[in-house]
Simulated assay, not measured.
Amino acid sequence: MRQLSSRAAATLATCAMFLMPGTAARAAEWPQQPITLVAPFTPGGTTDIVARAVAMQLQQQLGQTVIVENKPGAGGTLGAGIVARAKPDGYTLLLANVGHTAASALYKNLPYDFERDMTQITTVADVPNVLVVAKSSPVNSVSELLDYAKAHPKEIDYGSAGIGTTQHLSAELLKKQTGMQALHIPFKGAAPMMTDLIGGRLTFALDSAASAAAQINGGGVKPLAVTSLERTRFLPDVPTLDESGVSGYQMSTWYSLAGPKNMPPAVVQRIWQAVKASMDDPVMRKTLEGMAANPGGMDPAEFQKFVHEETVRWTTLAKDWDSND
């Protein structure tokens, strides 16, 4: 009787293994259907640009259609929430960025936690931000901006793609390090924010170099400084904030792939390997170079640790902020 029970148990265990969607057998077959990559901001911004470049590469590496869906709103948390609630089978992914690591500290009653409730897969790109003002602005340098802010303490404002986004984080870090007062004006994306900046309805913005590139080249905005500790090859004549007197200022916008919690490890590894391989693709390299971006490809375990460090960094700083200022 015991022998029969053992055989029955073994049979049931084997059947269960093949029925479970997270098994190695199922992962080896993945992907068997189109993959959705959620870009949680409006079309035209850096997140959207990166998402489409990544989608094209994943499509080539995985041999399956990858569809980019823009789900803007609430500083990128709306799109992240959609992915967090999705089935953890690898068919719904998020093009995340640094701003998601601060979201839990900035949004009340957020239905998910980016660090705990998402599967962190890998980095895709790392891009410096650039401090820009409208072409019509009387400000032509960081020191002039700080002097202007002191002279007009209640008239300074800055734009962002939403609370907790890279533009918001960059500006609040600048405020903290300089003591500058400035009102935060959140938008639903970088593109509408840039429209208001060019129109003179905002004092300044700290947008990613990739997103601001067209307006810088077209003369719509003036770059005052970049946020990396070293000058970027994209804007070699533009000083860093550190060079401009904001000692030690450093901020970059990293982009990554994430998915719902509890994705099969084999699927995570497959996606990571695809991203890593894409970093050597000439088309992807050209895309990243055009954005002044450093290539990604960090392994999942290392990236999970990095996300934790970034979460601690930004949530600690966020305690000093009023998210409605």
Rank of each mutant, 00 (worst) to 15 (best):
L206W: 01
L206S: 13
D207F: 00
A209V: 12
S211L: 09
S211Y: 04
A213T: 05
A214H: 07
Q215L: 14
G218Q: 12
K222P: 01
K222S: 11
K222I: 14
P223F: 04
L224I: 10
V226E: 15
V226M: 06
E230G: 05
T232I: 14
T232L: 10
F234R: 12
F234P: 07
L235W: 11
L235S: 04
L235A: 08
P236Y: 08
D237E: 12
V238G: 07
T240R: 00
L241R: 02
L241Y: 03
E243D: 13
E243V: 05
G245D: 15
G245I: 15
V246A: 07
G248R: 08
G248S: 07
Y249D: 01
Q250Y: 08
M251H: 15
S252W: 01
T253I: 01
T253E: 10
T253V: 04
W254E: 11
W254L: 14
Y255Q: 06
S256K: 05
S256L: 05
S256F: 15
S256R: 04
G259V: 14
P260I: 07
P260M: 09
P260Q: 06
K261D: 00
M263C: 07
P265C: 11
V267E: 01
V267W: 00
V268D: 06
R270G: 09
W272L: 08
Q273D: 10
A274F: 13
V275R: 04
V275K: 08
K276A: 14
A277V: 08
A277N: 08
A277F: 03
S278I: 08
D280L: 10
D281H: 13
V283W: 11
M284A: 07
R285E: 08
K286N: 12
K286C: 04
E289N: 08
G290M: 07
M291V: 01
A292Q: 09
G297F: 09
M298T: 10
M298A: 13
A301T: 13
V307A: 01
H308F: 10
E309I: 00
E310M: 14
R313W: 06
